[in-house]
Design a protein around this nucleic acid. Structure first.
Lengths: 154, 154
DNA sequence: TAAAACCTTGGAGTGCACTCCAAGCAAGCG
DNA sequence: CGCTTGCTTGGAGTGCACTCCAAGGTTTTA
């Protein structure tokens, strides 16, 4: 039989979110499936990140299997945050390249982070604007619902 | 010659964002290109929204050209907000269908809006978390930059 | 009235971020 | 030792949200 390697093979009705298992400390070596559990990413995605240059070099066991280390998980945490900002993967790859290139790229990395911070602030503002619209619409619906209800009870 | 109908055909270096022209009041009829100017969407996208059922029926001139009205622009404003929340287009189509179906769907629409509001609140929280990470990283880079600078001046 | 700019359609194409596949090697357990 | 479960690869496939095309009709400007 072939191995499935899907996410959440169990109940498919409202599968619980990929709650990230907390990373134990005192260890510095993890298999890909452990990293899947920590990050909520799929193994496919982890390997894909590596192929496109988004990951630093990942250690391998003597037989070629990936052995992630704590610094790799820290990097994945950062990537996860940047992903939440909507930053394109290509930009994250660029950032990863700059990290590999070393100290010469400090200024450039600094600028990228500051630009990202500006974007995040702007998006938060947009979302708060949207929230205001939703609040207005929701109270409109609540009022309309009450009106319909009282109509129904008349 | 063929018509281009692209966005921003001018300078392609850092083209200014599609700043939405303000909608004039006292009018209730607009061509598609005016709506493009108001919303920042492309004409392609506006027609596509219509095809997939995301728009209400749009009036036509006697020769079949679209004539948008203020209520259509109001709807597009809402769609724009919902889009910012990351709501899938399919969900917005569902909402549009419910609006067309009429009063029977009030409760359902109400729930959808409330769920969206929850999502938006959650996303704002995530982004604020990310902002904290960025702030920490940026001040780290600022310190490192200062260290490098003073090293350079030594 | 002629040229330029704008609008119409269905269907095909694009870019992104995954997502999956097949075939085979590796690891842990009774 | 055999069984099950897990990990490996390159390349192909998927889903979403647009984005564009060709060929032609319409409206506006000079």
């Amino acid at each position: 039989m072939t191995v499935m390697e899907t996410t959440e093979p169990g109940t498919d009705t409202c599968a619980d979110p990929p709650r990230a298992t907390r990373r134990p400390d005192g260890r510095d070596q993890y298999t890909i499936s452990e990293v899947v559990a920590f990050t909520g990413l799929t193994a496919h995605t982890l390997r894909w990140y590596e192929r496109i240059g988004l990951m630093p070099h990942i250690d391998r066991s003597h037989t070629g299997q990936r052995r992630y280390r704590n610094r790799d998980l820290d990097w994945l945490d950062l990537v996860g945050k940047l992903r939440l900002t909507g930053m394109p993967v290509a930009d994250m790859v660029r950032y990863a390249e700059m990290v590999r290139e070393g100290d010469d790229t400090y200024a450039e990395r600094f600028e990228l982070l500051e630009a990202t911070r500006r974007d995040v602030r702007a998006r938060i503002a947009e979302l708060q604007d949207t929230l205001a619209v939703l609040d207005r619409k929701i109270s409109f619906y609540a009022d309309a619902g009450r009106a319909l209800a009282s109509e129904g009870s008349r």
